[in-house]
Design a protein around this nucleic acid. Structure first.
Length: 508
RNA sequence: GGCCCGUUGGUCAAGGGGUUAAGACGCAUCCCUUUCACGGAUGAAUCACGAGUUCGAUUCUCGUACGGGCUACCA
């Protein structure tokens, strides 16, 4: 049954938007799997039924699809290790928990939520603000370790609500080797008796992750650093249940920090930059949180940026294609320290990707951006030329709306302040002459246009600079855009003349 | 509070006993460009602090400080 094939998994709980850190975990899983010709699995961790959020699961897969990080096995792709949704695996877990009880590594606990609250309140001191259900406390609680066997049997038989807790050893050192951090040690004396199986029969993450990683033959397990403190529980579970030699290799990824510590789903919209891969609408509040996709990011750039957030190949190279990442990524070169997310740098990555993309590659996305602003761009040939001309000044795909619009529709407003104060009779004459000259033009290209333009300017005793800016405003509406003669070329003879005439009429 | 993880410029970071301590983002100035960008150039770090090991520590060890995470019948 066991193979040597690399099998990794991303195990999200479908409770809301998929944020940066989640996508990066997916990415590292994906890259690792591809590099080792292994299998990438997505397993849905939906054991907490109270946190079910409709649509969240589908949303996650949409994000993965957009990012180009689709799994080989999952609820969508299927596979031989299913079901891939833990809620559908519910019957599998109980036997492992019971086995642990039978082996003396776990016990039944009958404490009610109220009793647990009371315990926490009673034992709370300044020295110990959050008392745990651990070896010091379990002797005072209602569980199969403290209750007489007959009573335990009675409670069990009568179906009294009960959980199964791991019985942490009194004083053992649990250690394992993390692929990023090296050897990590914990003393079991300070780890609490985590619940393994909940009263509703569902496993907690702790039991589920171990059982499913075993059942799905996971060879390498990557997750966020926030899981490090509970790693000893998982290591012990592996030891008790399946043998430590079968345990996957762990890598605890450094956290991606926001301005105030760990990025959280809750604060999704409050940072001034996106944290989710794609737009997420909370089904309860109907609140929309903007995603990187909708903000105007290219998936290639998004992935590239995420890969470099915590990893680099040591050469200084920053722009990587997905294939390059697959080839060069290594878990050993992942940083151990958390990284503060820098939105400016993220935009730089996107800019780089836009600049080096062929117009045809950007065409559909740019079309969508323009369509959203009701700007028609049906002519692909024209659109491609426009994209080529303006892409270097677009950091986000949405920037194309401003940078490309005037090629398709005449400006609605003009920066009059840049023209009017310096307008005079000779400029007026110059542009009427330009119109005549353009109307007679047989060839229509940038060099000839520029040549004629400057020659006429000289004949009118005008410096080119005096009339270049007004000309730009006439065509574009503002002080921006590519070289003005390139714009006129693409606009075409009729439209260029039309815009000059129109602007001249506005000046009257 | 306890436990765990971290700490090289504002941010991402290379380097892991002897270096002028890379590079990128951002910022500033300049060049190019009679718009805006692109491109190019230049500028900015006593490697958190204190001990120790050493001929020599940014690099190794230990403390301290600071930052972060965890401390639920959530993941």
């Amino acid at each position: 049954m066991h193979t040597n094939k690399v099998r990794v998994r991303f195990a999200p709980s479908p409770t809301g938007g998929l944020h940066l850190g989640g996508v990066r975990t997916v990415l590292y899983n994906y890259l690792f799997a591809r590099q080792h010709k292994g299998v990438f699995i997505v397993r849905i961790e939906d054991t907490d039924q109270s946190r079910f959020v409709p649509g969240a699961e589908e949303y996650i897969f949409n994000c993965l699809k957009w990012a180009g990080l689709e799994p080989d096995e999952s609820v969508v792709q299927g596979g031989k290790y299913g079901p891939y949704r833990q809620s559908e695996r519910k019957p599998l877990y109980r036997k492992y928990a019971e086995q642990l009880v039978a082996d003396g590594h776990a016990y039944y606990a009958f404490d009610t939520p109220e009793e647990l609250d009371k315990m926490r309140a009673d034992f709370k001191t300044e020295q110990n603000p959050s008392p745990q259900y651990d070896q010091h406390i379990r002797g005072r609680m209602r569980n199969s370790l403290t209750l007489p066997p007959e009573e335990v049997k009675h409670l069990l038989d009568s179906g009294a609500p009960c959980v199964i807790r791991i019985k942490m050893p009194a004083d053992e050192v649990v250690s394992f080797t993390d692929m990023i951090r090296g050897e990590v040690n914990f003393n079991t004396s300070v780890v609490d008796d985590k619940v393994l199986l909940k009263a509703d029969g569902m496993p907690t993450y702790h039991l589920a992750v171990v059982a499913d990683d075993y059942l799905m033959e996971i060879t390498h397990a990557f997750r966020g650093e926030e899981w490090l403190p509970s790693a000893p529980v998982h290591v012990l579970l592996w030891k008790y249940l399946f043998g430590i030699d079968k345990m996957p290799q762990w890598a605890h990824l450094p956290l991606i920090l926001g301005p105030n510590g760990k990025l959280s789903k809750r604060d999704g919209a409050k940072y001034g930059f996106p944290v989710f891969a794609m737009n997420w609408t909370d089904p309860k509040t109907n609140e929309l949180t903007e995603g990187f996709k909708e903000k105007g990011f290219l998936p290639e750039a998004f992935i590239n940026m995420l890969a470099l957030l915590g990893w680099n190949d040591g050469t200084g190279q920053e722009i990587f294609t997905k294939d390059e990442l697959i080839e060069k990524f290594s878990m050993e070169r992942v940083h151990s320290g958390g990284a503060k997310f820098d939105y400016e740098k993220a935009k730089w990555f996107n800019h780089e990707w836009i600049k080096q993309s062929e117009p045809a590659k950007l065409r559909q996305q740019v079309k969508q951006v323009l369509a959203a602003k009701n700007i028609p761009a049906a002519d692909d040939l024209l659109l491609d030329k426009v994209i080529l001309l303006v892409k270097e000044r677009c950091h986000l795909l949405t920037d194309f709306a401003e940078q490309a619009a005037f090629f398709f529709v005449a400006p609605e407003t003009y920066d009059m302040d840049a023209v009017k104060p310096k307008w005079n009779e000779s400029k007026q004459l110059f542009f009427t002459e330009i119109i005549r000259n353009f109307e007679l033009a047989i060839v229509w290209n940038a060099p000839d246009l520029e040549h004629n333009f400057k020659e006429i300017a000289a004949a009118n005793h005008l410096k080119p600079g005096e009339v270049l800016l007004p000309f730009r405003i006439m065509l574009v509406g503002g002080k921006f855009g590519p070289h003005v003669f390139d714009i006129a070329t693409l606009l075409g003879k009729q439209e260029t003349i039309r815009r000059i005439k129109h602007f001249l009429s506005l000046l009257q």
